[in-house]
Amino acid sequence: MIITPDSADFAALLCDSHRRLTGRDLVDPPQADPAHWLYDTAPFCVLAHDTQADPCFVYANRAAQRCFEYDWNDFVGLPSRLSAEAPNRDERARLLADVSRQGYASGYRGLRIARSGRRFWIEDVTVWNLIGTDGIRHGQAATYRRITPV
Results as ranks from 00 to 15, higher is better:
residue 1 M to Q: 15
residue 2 I to F: 15
residue 3 I to N: 05
residue 3 I to E: 10
residue 4 T to V: 12
residue 5 P to I: 02
residue 6 D to A: 12
residue 7 S to Q: 08
residue 8 A to V: 14
residue 10 F to K: 01
residue 12 A to W: 08
residue 13 L to N: 06
residue 14 L to P: 01
residue 14 L to T: 00
residue 15 C to N: 12
residue 17 S to Q: 06
residue 18 H to I: 00
residue 19 R to T: 12
residue 20 R to H: 13
residue 25 D to I: 06
residue 29 P to Y: 04
residue 29 P to W: 02
residue 29 P to R: 03
residue 33 D to G: 03
residue 36 H to G: 08
residue 36 H to D: 07
residue 38 L to M: 09
residue 38 L to K: 05
residue 39 Y to S: 10
residue 42 A to L: 00
residue 42 A to H: 01
residue 43 P to I: 02
residue 43 P to R: 03
residue 44 F to L: 06
residue 46 V to C: 09
residue 46 V to T: 14
residue 50 D to P: 05
residue 50 D to V: 06
residue 51 T to D: 15
residue 51 T to H: 13
residue 52 Q to H: 12
residue 53 A to F: 01
residue 53 A to V: 11
residue 53 A to T: 09
residue 55 P to K: 10
residue 57 F to P: 04
residue 60 A to V: 02
residue 60 A to Y: 03
residue 61 N to D: 13
residue 62 R to A: 04
residue 66 R to W: 12
residue 67 C to P: 01
residue 67 C to I: 04
residue 68 F to L: 15
residue 69 E to F: 08
residue 69 E to S: 11
residue 70 Y to C: 11
residue 71 D to L: 00
residue 72 W to V: 05
residue 73 N to C: 09
residue 73 N to E: 07
residue 73 N to G: 12
residue 73 N to A: 11
residue 74 D to C: 12
residue 77 G to H: 01
residue 79 P to V: 06
residue 79 P to E: 13
residue 80 S to L: 14
residue 81 R to I: 14
residue 81 R to L: 13
residue 82 L to C: 06
residue 83 S to D: 07
residue 84 A to K: 10
residue 86 A to I: 01
residue 86 A to P: 09
residue 86 A to N: 01
residue 87 P to Q: 02
residue 90 D to L: 10
residue 90 D to Y: 06
residue 93 A to F: 13
residue 93 A to C: 15
residue 94 R to N: 07
residue 94 R to F: 09
residue 94 R to C: 07
residue 95 L to E: 13
residue 98 D to E: 15
residue 99 V to D: 05
residue 99 V to F: 05
residue 100 S to W: 13
residue 100 S to R: 14
residue 101 R to V: 04
residue 102 Q to C: 15
residue 103 G to D: 08
residue 104 Y to N: 13
residue 105 A to F: 01
residue 105 A to W: 01
residue 105 A to Y: 00
residue 105 A to G: 07
residue 108 Y to M: 00
residue 109 R to F: 05
residue 110 G to E: 09
residue 110 G to A: 11
residue 114 A to H: 07
residue 115 R to I: 10
residue 117 G to M: 04
residue 118 R to M: 11
residue 122 I to D: 00
residue 125 V to T: 11
residue 126 T to L: 04
residue 128 W to D: 02
residue 129 N to M: 14
residue 130 L to V: 12
residue 130 L to S: 10
residue 131 I to C: 08
residue 132 G to K: 01
residue 133 T to P: 14
residue 135 G to N: 03
residue 136 I to D: 14
residue 138 H to M: 12
residue 141 A to K: 00
residue 141 A to S: 00
residue 143 T to G: 00
residue 143 T to R: 09
residue 145 R to G: 10
residue 145 R to A: 15
residue 146 R to E: 08
residue 149 P to T: 09
